[in-house]
Amino acid sequence: MSNKICDLFQIEYPIIQAGMIWNSGWRLASAVSNAGGLGLIGAGSMYPDVLLEHIQKCKKATNKPFGVNVPMLYPNITEIMDIIIAEGVKIVFTSAGNPKTWTTWLKERGVTVVHVVSNVKFALKAEAAGVDAVVAEGFEAGGHNGREETTTLTLIPMVKEKISVPLIAAGGIATGRGMLAARVLGADAVQVGSRFVASEESSAHQKFKEVVVNAQDGDTHLTLKELAPVRLIKNKFYNDVQELYKTTPTVEEIKKLLGRARAKRGMFEGDLEEGELEIGQIAGLIKDIKPAAEIVKEMLEEYDIAKKEVANL
């Protein structure tokens, strides 16, 4: 299934596992890479020493390409980038920041750079900054999201029309049919997050994984837009946020309620009441927890079936 993205990353299939905080450690990244996709370690939930450990373990667990996702809003960013270079990681996905900040520095050191965006404006800025590819992530995605609330269905063709670098679609993609739809819209590959949360190798807490597979249509919502829009499963914490909104709170009052480490508490430690449970709308189609390799295989098989069905339309 060779194409621009497969050639760029030297992978077999155009399936990228998203670098999600508290969900994507070395076990998941190496499993996806070993299955022929591109695994990403999510540096957003890791102190530098923890990231170093995950990179070193990932290198032992796979001889295939893998990368690191780096949200640029986190502290210790310089130390994180130095570790990535020192450990010889050749693929970095950046997000939540200006791509100009690190793209040239990384590329001068032989790193392939991809930036995650939520609109056409930032896609163009990323291309101008010199990135090798762009991830366009739609409103359906879990976790932190774009303020424009543009869906994947509309975002992908709009971005495709404006940029010339390879395009990766993200947001609401967990099946082979979704992968085919994204390719038809102009994407060269797909980035999959929520489906890999519900994998055996995901570092998410088992209780959170079970909540994901039990989620139904309408069980997630984009909230906390005054801080950074985030899609959450509705739980006690989510309900507390909605109650606070009824009082027309200040940003400081919202920050006070949010506190610190809510995402870790929910997704990594399994506090289903007070934790922040980040997942995409596609959770309504996720019905089981299985090995990452089986998820990749299942997506590819469904993709081939869907292609044949489309050919007969």
Rank of each mutant, 00 (worst) to 15 (best):
K100R: 13
K100V: 09
T101Q: 15
T103K: 01
L106Q: 04
K107S: 05
K107W: 03
E108A: 08
R109W: 08
R109E: 15
V111N: 03
T112W: 03
H115N: 11
V116I: 14
V116D: 15
V116L: 15
V117N: 01
L124V: 13
L124K: 10
L124R: 07
L124G: 04
L124H: 07
K125Q: 13
A128D: 15
A129P: 03
A129R: 09
A129H: 10
G130M: 09
G130K: 06
G130L: 07
D132F: 01
D132W: 02
A133L: 03
V134M: 07
V134E: 12
V135Y: 07
V135M: 07
A136K: 02
G138F: 00
E140W: 00
H144R: 14
H144S: 09
H144Q: 13
N145A: 08
G146I: 00
E148K: 10
T150N: 14
T151N: 14
T154R: 11
L155M: 06
I156T: 02
I156V: 05
P157M: 05
M158S: 13
K160E: 13
K160H: 11
E161Q: 13
S164H: 15
V165A: 04
P166Q: 04
P166H: 01
P166E: 11
I168L: 06
A169C: 05
A169I: 02
G171M: 00
I173C: 03
I173T: 01
G176H: 04
R177I: 08
R177G: 12
G178S: 04
L180G: 02
A181E: 05
A182I: 01
A182E: 08
A189S: 03
V190W: 00
Q191E: 12
R195G: 06
F196A: 05
A198I: 01
A198S: 09
S202N: 05
A204P: 03
A204W: 00
A204C: 06
A204D: 05
H205S: 11
F208D: 09
K209M: 06
K209D: 03
V212A: 06
A215K: 07
Q216N: 15
D217H: 11
D219I: 04
H221D: 15
K225E: 12
K225I: 15
K225S: 15
E226M: 14
L227M: 14
A228Q: 13
A228V: 14
P229I: 00
P229R: 04
P229N: 07
R231L: 03
L232M: 14
L232K: 09
K234M: 07
Y238S: 08
D240S: 10
V241N: 11
Q242L: 13
E243G: 10
E243P: 11
Y245S: 07
Y245G: 08
Y245F: 11
